[in-house]
Design a protein around this nucleic acid. Structure first.
Lengths: 138, 138
DNA sequence: TTAATTAGCTTGCGTTTTGCAAGGCGTGAC
DNA sequence: GTCACGCCTTGCAAAACGCAAGCTAATTAA
């Protein structure tokens, strides 16, 4: 396992604290897979269109579990598979993901027909947030 | 200059789009310095308690400028210095920063007396957001 | 008008992380 | 048994990071 996140910045700043946990190019994409797409297994995560490498994926899954953002359990239906699910701490990342989606929607030139979705989000932030697993936005 | 952010993931997902721009351990800390602490120059950024290296700082400033999140201009008062300031695109990151602060406030065990600030934020999100440059939270 | 200082930036080099390809191992199906 | 599936490890090259040193242009001090 690549020894990731070696340097932890205990400065007390909440921004730095958050970035120490999910401040990289892959962690929030794994969260997105679970939260927005309902994917739950290693092989489902491997299907994401951004083409994550196997060692990076397993590294992020381990650190997410170590940080208490996801739980890992055997799939009762298929006992050679594992199911990853968000803890409360993980689910609480929803507003951050939502704000990233809003920001990108406003500033991504290629934002293909996302505008209408964005207007809905802005109009009903609460409602959207509670129903985040409904495929909108991504 | 370290050739940063080589791989750009044009998948159309707004989460990936955002992470391509600020998905690393330093970019949002530079934004924090400007937005929350009112710092504007290279040497002021070097004073941040997380001890950023000079080459990393200049690399991030250049990519922030290239992405149109900050503007750079000569300081009229001190013509050997430059002033960095947020563009609209940069200022629009405020809600993301705010949500990170809220998340960390809830999940950082060492969250020294931040709780009361958080309650204020939650109670008056709009108000807090518009006055983000007021030293609270960080 | 020359020397020193300040602010911003570059360079070199060792370490860490990432990306990619290949392969290994445990579980369950046949 | 043997085979396939799902999860995970390993090896190696490339990129990014971290650290220390030094360079350059603008300003101030002598």
């Amino acid at each position: 396992m690549t020894k990731n996140k070696t340097k932890i910045r205990q400065t007390g700043c909440p921004v730095a604290f958050g970035l120490d946990i999910f401040g990289d190019r892959w962690t929030l994409l794994v969260i997105r897979e679970i939260m927005l797409r309902g994917r739950r297994t290693y092989s489902e995560f491997m299907e994401m269109e951004e083409e994550i490498a196997t060692n990076i994926l397993i590294d992020r899954l381990k650190s997410l579990e170590a940080e208490g953002l996801v739980d890992k359990e055997r799939d009762p239906q298929n006992r050679r598979s594992f199911l990853y699910s968000l803890t409360k701490k993980g689910r609480d990342l929803a507003p951050i993901l939502l704000e990233i989606i809003i920001w990108s929607g406003e500033h991504d030139k290629r934002s293909f027909a996302l505008t209408e979705v964005l207007e809905k989000i802005e109009a009903d932030r609460e409602g959207f947030e509670s129903g985040l697993r409904s495929e909108k936005g991504c």
